[in-house]
Amino acid sequence: MSSREDEALALAAVDALTGQLALAPKPGLPDPRDLGARATSPDHCSLRWSAKALAPGLAAMAAAARRTGEPSPQLRAELGAIGRCTEHSVGLAGGGHRGALWTLGLLVAAAALDPGARSKDVATAAKKIAAHSDRRAPRRPSRGSSVSAKYGAAGARGEARAGFPHVRRALDALAVSRKAGADEAEARLDALLTVMSTLQDTELLYTAGPSGLRHVQAGARGVLEAGGTTTDAGREALFALDTDLHARAWSPRGSAGLLAGALFVDTLPVPAGPRAA
């Protein structure tokens, strides 16, 4: 049974995901502008609704971590089982968010293992959980794993086993943008572009191949090099990239899920002082 602490972590993760969905303009990704179009409005509404269906599963993952008390193979197997049940529930609610569930599930479990952890420590704990194999997972290869094998990309599993480097990069970008005077939406968009600029997104590799991935990475870097979303040149580059990716039907979904992970970690309480040795 989950506690209030577990439910609070789950709701914070869902809020991070819905916060990511609320950003606009997100190049090639669903955002609130879809609500004004007949063709895309139902899809965006479904994504917002199905995000809430993650909450019970995420709370169960936090409870499992708190009960287990360590990033063990047992915890990894339990998280996998809960994740598969949650995917089914989300599918009934409209679908989507599979990548975000993987990222948020591991980070929620890591946060539950050590409620006083700093963001770097949360990512490290998630890395330790992800290092174990889920022996009960279906043996059929997923699209992401097939693309990772074909192109040598880290993929979602590799990102987790490396300690979520792109979540950490997004957190750094948020801090830099806020310090420079960006409002919250601008800081979050800059963080998204920071992830897009280097992530080997398996969704993009599947739909656009290596050249398409490089095109998207270069476009994201172009926005940041123009000054980011707080400058006129940066906003112009952002809208140009958004138009380009929507025209090509290329969607950097992996970056969106990792941004949601960063926004979740960003909400965790900051410890008052240095951690005890």
Rank of each mutant, 00 (worst) to 15 (best):
D242K: 04
S177G: 08
A125F: 03
L29A: 09
G273Q: 12
L213C: 06
G144I: 06
E5V: 07
G163L: 00
R118T: 12
A156G: 11
L224V: 09
W49S: 13
A109W: 11
G83C: 05
E78M: 04
G228M: 10
I129S: 07
R139Y: 02
A8H: 07
G94P: 11
L192A: 08
S89G: 05
R84C: 01
R253H: 07
G36D: 14
Y151R: 08
M196D: 01
A218P: 00
G144V: 05
G228N: 10
G80P: 09
A112I: 02
E159C: 04
L193N: 06
A162M: 12
W102I: 04
A220W: 09
A51L: 06
R66E: 13
H88I: 06
F164A: 00
L113E: 01
E225F: 04
V223R: 11
G83P: 04
R188I: 00
D190G: 03
E184Y: 03
A208Y: 10
A175N: 12
P71I: 01
L192C: 09
T103M: 05
A218Y: 01
L238M: 08
A65T: 04
A59S: 14
A77D: 14
P56T: 06
L259H: 08
W250M: 08
P274A: 13
L192I: 08
A180G: 07
S2L: 02
G152Q: 11
V216E: 07
G91S: 09
F239M: 10
L107T: 01
A153I: 10
R66W: 03
G155N: 08
A208S: 13
A10Q: 06
V122F: 06
K179Y: 02
S197R: 14
D114T: 09
R84V: 01
H166M: 02
L23D: 11
A65I: 03
A111H: 04
L205T: 08
R48S: 08
A60T: 06
L11H: 12
L104H: 09
A117E: 10
A12H: 06
E203I: 12
A13T: 06
R48I: 03
G228T: 12
D232E: 15
A187K: 10
S133I: 05
A154I: 00
A111I: 02
T198C: 09
T18C: 12
A63N: 09
T243H: 13
F264Y: 14
G254C: 11
H166C: 00
E203K: 07
D34Q: 14
L92S: 09
R275M: 02
R169C: 00
L101A: 03
L241S: 08
L21Y: 15
A276I: 09
P27E: 08
E5T: 13
A62G: 10
L58K: 12
R143V: 06
P42L: 11
L47H: 12
T194R: 13
A154V: 00
L11M: 13
R48L: 15
T103Q: 02
R169G: 00
A39V: 14
D31L: 11
A180I: 01
I82M: 05
R178Q: 13
A182G: 10
G257C: 05
V265M: 05
L193W: 11
D121W: 03
L17C: 03
S251G: 04
D232S: 13
F264N: 02
D172E: 14
E87H: 06
S211L: 11
A180W: 02
V14Q: 05
A65L: 05
A63W: 07
A109I: 05
A170W: 10
V147M: 05
